[in-house]
Structure formats: C-alpha cells, structure tokens
C-alpha cells in the first residue's frame, strides 16, 4: 500500500488553481518539488498536511487525512514551514524537545523524551546552541533548530518547505546528506536544483499549479527544467547551468 495517495486534488484561491490528478508515494521515497515562485509548491504542502482543506483527496497508508486526529497526523507526518517561529524566549533545547509532543504520554516530557532529544542535538551538532535563547540565533541557526524539532517529532513522513533556506553550503550539504540516510519519506520544495539533483530520487516539476512532470533523476532533463522555469538550461560537468 502506498504511503501517500493523492487523487483528484483540486484547490482554488482567487485566480490561483492547483490540480493534481493521481500520484502515489512509496515509503522512504525522497521527492524534491521544483517550480517557480507561486507555482503551488507550498500550497501543496499545506494541502498534504491538512492546513488547507483537500476534500478527501489525500490518504496516508489508506486512511483519509480527514479521518486522522491531530495527534495521529503528528505521528504520521511533520512539517517544517517556510517561516517557522517561536514567540517568547524558549531555549533551543526546549524548542526541539517540544517536537516530541505527539509522543509524550504525560503532562510533561519524560526522561526518555529528554534523552532522545539530547541524542538528536548531538547528532545534528547543536550542542553549543542547546541552552541559548532560540530568538537570539541567526536565521541559519534557527533553521537548523527547527529542522531538529521536526525530526524529533519522529513521524514517518517529512514535509520540509525549503529546508536549506538561510543555510550555508556546508550545513546544506550536511542536512541533505543526513536526510538521505534516514528512512523517512521526504517531500521538499527545493530552490537549489543542483543540490536537489544530488540528493533526491524523484522530482515533481510544478508550473502554475499543475504537475508538469513526475520524473526520476535520470529523466530530469535540461528541456524539462527549461520549460518549468522559462530559462535556458545546459549542463556543465554533470551540473545544470541556468541562463536567461
């Protein structure tokens, strides 16, 4: 059974329309969504996570999204929004720890939750930031912490809206490499196409709210990218080169 099934998805807001006829995603797949600004990438994530109503068009492991409670959804998938923020001075460790809310049984985090969070903080090399106020970190540091919060939710599926936004090259590579090694199903709009081509297996190319192509890495051609972004595309040493 497919991990995610989308069938006859229609969404309209003002002049913008998003349509997706039929798509299935298998467990563990890593999918990059590519497309111009305003092509519907973030809207699709909002529909997939139930933040926007999708009218029974989306199922997770055979269960319709609308039939899942908030806690069931949180155990099934987690989302890194484009602009994730926290009001008031919470520490980095507290922010990441709260990611486990859907797994917590009691009124406050158990020792196991604290332990798992400490491990994740070490794995993602966030030890130095753990006690700092989240709101006093740089944009890139905040993004890494939010990513850790999303991973700490321990959901099977990750929806990451531009996960490497504000990250430097080294951290971008580290994060994508880390995500590639995980067993999660991953769906992420990505703007850096060469990075996406390096780390993802499957690509959804969106144009004006429509799925232009659903291809594997070997089928991600210059022609397709050119049509998606309205620019000239060539390849140099296995990398895509874009020009106007």
């Amino acid at each position: 059974m497919a991990e995610i099934t989308i069938r006859d998805l229609h969404f309209k807001r003002g002049d913008f329309q998003l349509q997706l006829a039929a798509v299935k995603v298998a467990a563990g797949e890593k999918i990059a969504i590519l497309g111009e600004n305003g092509s519907g990438k973030s809207t699709l994530l909002q529909l997939l996570t139930g933040l926007l109503a999708s009218r029974n068009a989306i199922s997770y492991a055979g269960q319709r999204l609308e039939h899942l409670s908030m806690l069931q959804r949180a155990r099934c998938f987690s989302l890194l929004p484009q602009q994730a923020e926290v009001i008031f001075p919470f520490s980095v460790f507290e922010v990441i720890l709260l990611g486990r809310f859907a797994r917590m049984q009691g009124q406050s985090p158990a020792e196991a939750d604290q332990q798992a969070t400490r491990q994740l903080v070490q794995q993602l090399e966030l030890d130095d930031l753990a006690t700092r106020n989240f709101n006093q970190l740089s944009g890139g540091e905040q993004r890494r912490v939010m990513l850790a919060r999303v991973l700490n939710q321990q959901a099977r599926i990750l929806f990451l809206d531009e996960p490497n936004a504000s990250l430097d090259v080294r951290h971008s590579l580290e994060i994508f490499d880390y995500l590639r090694r995980q067993q999660h199903t991953l769906i992420a709009p990505v703007h850096d196409i060469n990075l996406a081509a390096q780390f993802f297996q499957r690509f959804w190319l969106f144009k004006q709210g429509h799925l232009l192509a659903d291809v594997s890495r070997s089928d991600l051609t210059c022609e397709l990218l050119s049509e998606t972004f309205n620019v000239k595309v060539s390849t140099v040493a296995d990398s895509f080169l874009f020009s106007r």
Partner: peptide, 23 residues
Amino acid sequence: QRNALQLNLLAFDEASARTMGVN
C-alpha cells in the same frame, strides 16, 4: 495547568503548532 504542555505549542507559528499535534 493540565493543558500547560499543549499551551507551549501555541508559542510556535500556527502551521507548526497544528502539525505538532495540537488542536
């Protein structure tokens, strides 16, 4: 106080809070 843990999630942006499991 019984809802204190959930209330903490309201400090996050709405999209994060909703997908973290709180109504």
